[in-house]
Simulated scan of single mutants.
Amino acid sequence: MKKNIILLGESNSIMQNGLQKGVKEGIEELNEAGLEFYNFALGANDSLHKIFATVKNEEKFYDAELIIIETNVNDYDMLYYTIDFENIALYMNILFKKLSCFKSKILFLILPFMARETRDKDYIERRNIIENFLRQKINHFGFNCIDTQTYYNKFDILPFFTQYR
């Protein structure tokens, strides 16, 4: 029986020479295990799209060895531009419950970003609301997480990458 590796991300997961390339290359190196790669990423979409992708492709998710997911950037954008936090929290809760049904390793990536001016207190507060809620859910469900946003904040790395915007 083949085991799947699923990438359920945002625009970062769509770029041909980005995250998906690294995952594919890793699978090719290990392919004696019969791993199959699926990328259900879609740019500019939040947790709601990820719920849809898990339902639509449920069989593949049940056969997944690993599900890699990123959602913080677009969930933030939804909060910043249109949707209130209660709806975003509802979508995240549904997504986490759905992911917990699969007997798979779940790896969340909390990616660093600075979409607005860093001195904008509203921006920082909204980003923190999304990311702290996400961290709380990851811990509650016992999922794995690579939190590069915290690392970038701790060592003040993000301004280096955004200074020439």
Rank of each mutant, 00 (worst) to 15 (best):
residue 81 Y to Q: 01
residue 26 G to I: 07
residue 109 L to H: 06
residue 9 G to D: 13
residue 64 A to Q: 08
residue 124 I to K: 12
residue 47 S to E: 11
residue 75 D to W: 00
residue 73 V to T: 03
residue 14 I to R: 07
residue 4 N to P: 10
residue 6 I to T: 12
residue 15 M to R: 12
residue 69 I to K: 05
residue 72 N to S: 05
residue 109 L to E: 08
residue 33 A to R: 13
residue 44 A to I: 08
residue 126 R to D: 00
residue 35 L to E: 01
residue 12 N to T: 14
residue 135 R to N: 09
residue 66 L to A: 10
residue 120 D to V: 04
residue 29 E to M: 03
residue 85 F to G: 01
residue 59 E to F: 07
residue 125 E to V: 04
residue 28 E to G: 08
residue 83 I to M: 09
residue 83 I to K: 09
residue 114 M to Q: 08
residue 93 N to G: 03
residue 35 L to D: 02
residue 135 R to Y: 05
residue 121 K to P: 02
residue 88 I to L: 01
residue 11 S to H: 05
residue 63 D to G: 10
residue 111 L to E: 11
residue 97 K to P: 09
residue 109 L to V: 08
residue 87 N to D: 04
residue 121 K to T: 07
residue 94 I to G: 09
residue 18 G to L: 09
residue 75 D to Q: 00
residue 86 E to A: 03
residue 108 F to Q: 02
residue 96 F to S: 04
residue 37 F to M: 04
residue 71 T to S: 05
residue 57 N to D: 15
residue 90 L to H: 03
residue 4 N to L: 13
residue 102 F to M: 10
residue 134 L to V: 07
residue 73 V to Q: 02
residue 13 S to P: 05
residue 85 F to E: 04
residue 114 M to W: 03
residue 127 R to W: 02
residue 79 L to K: 01
residue 39 N to M: 05
residue 112 P to E: 01
residue 32 E to Q: 10
residue 33 A to N: 14
residue 52 F to D: 15
residue 25 E to R: 15
residue 113 F to W: 00
residue 28 E to L: 14
residue 101 C to M: 14
residue 6 I to L: 10
residue 101 C to G: 15
residue 40 F to V: 06
residue 60 K to H: 04
residue 57 N to T: 14
residue 118 T to C: 01
residue 107 L to F: 08
residue 31 N to C: 09
residue 104 S to N: 12
residue 132 N to M: 03
residue 24 K to V: 06
residue 75 D to T: 00
residue 95 L to D: 01
residue 56 K to V: 04
residue 98 K to P: 01
residue 61 F to E: 10
residue 79 L to V: 00
residue 47 S to T: 10
residue 123 Y to N: 05
residue 8 L to I: 06
residue 25 E to V: 13
residue 123 Y to A: 04
residue 9 G to F: 13
residue 54 T to R: 03
residue 129 I to C: 02
residue 101 C to L: 14
residue 85 F to T: 02
residue 8 L to G: 03
residue 124 I to P: 11
residue 120 D to M: 03
residue 106 I to H: 08
residue 12 N to W: 10
